[in-house]
Design a protein around this nucleic acid. Structure first.
Lengths: 119, 119
DNA sequence: TCAAAGGTTAGCCGTTCTGCTAAACGTCGT
DNA sequence: ACGACGTTTAGCAGAACGGCTAACCTTTGA
């Protein structure tokens, strides 16, 4: 499916958003994956795979799979670093996808307004 | 499962919050359940079960089950109305649980950030 | 070249989820 | 009381999920 650089139709944009919602909320549905995101955040946004895996009781491959789900959701990014792998939190995407969706539920306000705590 | 329909205690919410996160994010993991919440919101916050069920392609019992998940998560409340049942959105809880969790990831609150992502 | 360290992939297995249909339940109108 | 209506519950089948172990790659270092 070719991607229009600038002239993205609103329909596809909406579809893209729906897909984002699905993959992100699906990733957030598991406690350990939420925990991984937290750990990443509280350790400055980036950790080695081994450091992440050691924090959890389950086996390393299981954590690897969770990291894969988070990566497919775009919530973390991987970078090979020698024989290590560094996972970096993508907090902006988390805020964007979840925050935008949550913003639709603001009580009696314009549902498309961005999260601006200025009012 | 012992769930008190009354207000939740605000004191020892530390353990309760984790449980809330789990049940709420689990409820939000399914597209139709998110869609139900949206429909409720955009129809003024309350709908009859039948009106909800008619909006979706799946069978009525399936929607009933989704509504049950949302109700167990505290995201909707039910009220028997004659032989109808009115489902009401609990947007406050949605905002509270999801928004609070999301608030941990704000860059301004980064606890030990070595590198600060530009705000 | 060999072996160890760091991670991932492959495959299995039990549990949970989601969909359906059929049946039951409570309420209203007659 | 009876039947129709609105909705839930029960039960089942198939798919998806999450855990594990074992095997596999890749890089480092001797």
């Amino acid at each position: 499916m070719p991607e229009s650089p600038k002239g993205r139709s609103r329909k596809k944009d909406a579809a893209r958003t729906l897909e984002d919602l699905e993959v992100v909320f699906d990733a957030l549905a598991h406690a350990q994956r939420r925990h991984i995101l937290m750990a990443l955040h509280f350790r400055g946004g980036a950790m080695l795979a081994g450091d992440i895996a050691e924090r959890f009781a389950c086996s390393w491959p299981t954590t690897t799979r969770h990291l894969g789900v988070l990566r497919d959701a775009g919530l973390v990014e991987v970078r090979q670093d020698g024989r290590h792998r560094t996972y970096r939190l993508n907090a902006a995407r988390l805020q964007s996808v979840v925050g935008d969706w949550l913003g639709h539920f603001t009580p009696s306000k314009a549902p498309k307004s961005r999260r601006r705590t200025k009012t």
